[in-house]
Design a protein around this nucleic acid. Sequence first.
DNA 1: CTCGTAATCTGATCACTGCTTAGATCATAT
DNA 2: ATATGATCTAAGCAGTGATCAGATTACGAG
Lengths: 209, 209
Amino acid sequence: MAVTTTYHKEDLRADLLRVGHAYVAASGHEGLSVRKLAAHAGVSPGAPYHHFPDKRTFLLAMAKEGFDELWERGSAIRAQAGSPIEVLTELAYAFFAFQAEKPRLVDLMYESELTRPIIDPLIVTEQLRAYALLRGAIEDAIPGMADGEARARTVAFWSAIYGYASLVGKGLLQPLASDGETSFQTWRDALVRQTVAAAILENTSDFKR
Amino acid sequence: MAVTTTYHKEDLRADLLRVGHAYVAASGHEGLSVRKLAAHAGVSPGAPYHHFPDKRTFLLAMAKEGFDELWERGSAIRAQAGSPIEVLTELAYAFFAFQAEKPRLVDLMYESELTRPIIDPLIVTEQLRAYALLRGAIEDAIPGMADGEARARTVAFWSAIYGYASLVGKGLLQPLASDGETSFQTWRDALVRQTVAAAILENTSDFKR
DNA sequence: CTCGTAATCTGATCACTGCTTAGATCATAT
DNA sequence: ATATGATCTAAGCAGTGATCAGATTACGAG
């Protein structure tokens, strides 16, 4: 006879995450509904609730996969240890690359119902881990900094990198380029050079009170 | 006999915007529904659709009021003309102040269904106006820059300011401060000083290709 | 091999959402 | 006074997140 369609799925949880990532990559997290998700996974509308208590929890699971991948890329860069300047530069470009590859996933991670009106604790945790990575790279360049200075330098670095990637993600920077990709790369390279330099300059006078 | 309740409202459109701003300020744009809006304005669920074709259009009208206020504050700062360093510094702090006063409105303006998955043309327009303001302030400091350099400096400046404000708005920076407001202000001041300095330094070597 | 238990899935249902539409009400100009 | 057009109500549509009773299946204990 015909192939018996399984009633119990192989691993519905993993299927849902797979389907979810595909949907988000294609259309963003805004239009994603539990019903569409279930339909794409070939399952009834209520089934996903046996694997995730909430829609929010499901989105959080997807976001976590994104943060994990980002973390792996970042810690790999730091592990293969070049000079501090090289490490910071590569970290910046790695974030831009991730944002370019999966812009809609980055939206989910940083700008979604998971971050508004109040941010989810898990995302705060992920962010602290990334903060520690950046701070470590900066402290490699300037050993023995006071706590406040290290914080200020890390925050300034991350603000510029995140801000730029975020604006690019919104499509708020391309329209300014009349000469296309060329100048687009030029700003980015200049911004990275500036930001890395500012994070690493030995002159600490700006941070003393 | 009793007071005749008016059937036609005085100015429902303005009332809706007022009510909308109050709701967003209190709870954010996420939970705002046309029905709640109508109820708060004392009107039937379908009434708002005679003044705004869409929910999106309504949100856009609210966002535009925010951009207009921001623009007025910014152009006032530039009009009262101090040194370029003072102007850029005050512009940065003005944006932080606006974000601190109306964080939920800033969410609506920069991180909402109006900016995702694709950004609304009106917001791009508003952003270009603000970009021109910043660029002008930077060009006051360094006259006669090449186009690419002016762009790169402006983009880098705006990226850092926006990125920092955005992270603060998400509550992603406070948790890092163990000593409260003091160090919080310290990072911010250091970031502004760094960013303004980088935007204005005469050394153009970083921008030549 | 049987059978009970727990996990999984279906299908119906609830309150809520954005939006549409027919018809009632009102202001205003002629 | 009356007609025109703007405004509003009330009902209803499809789609949403979430719940739940009952059907189906896997699996371990006897």
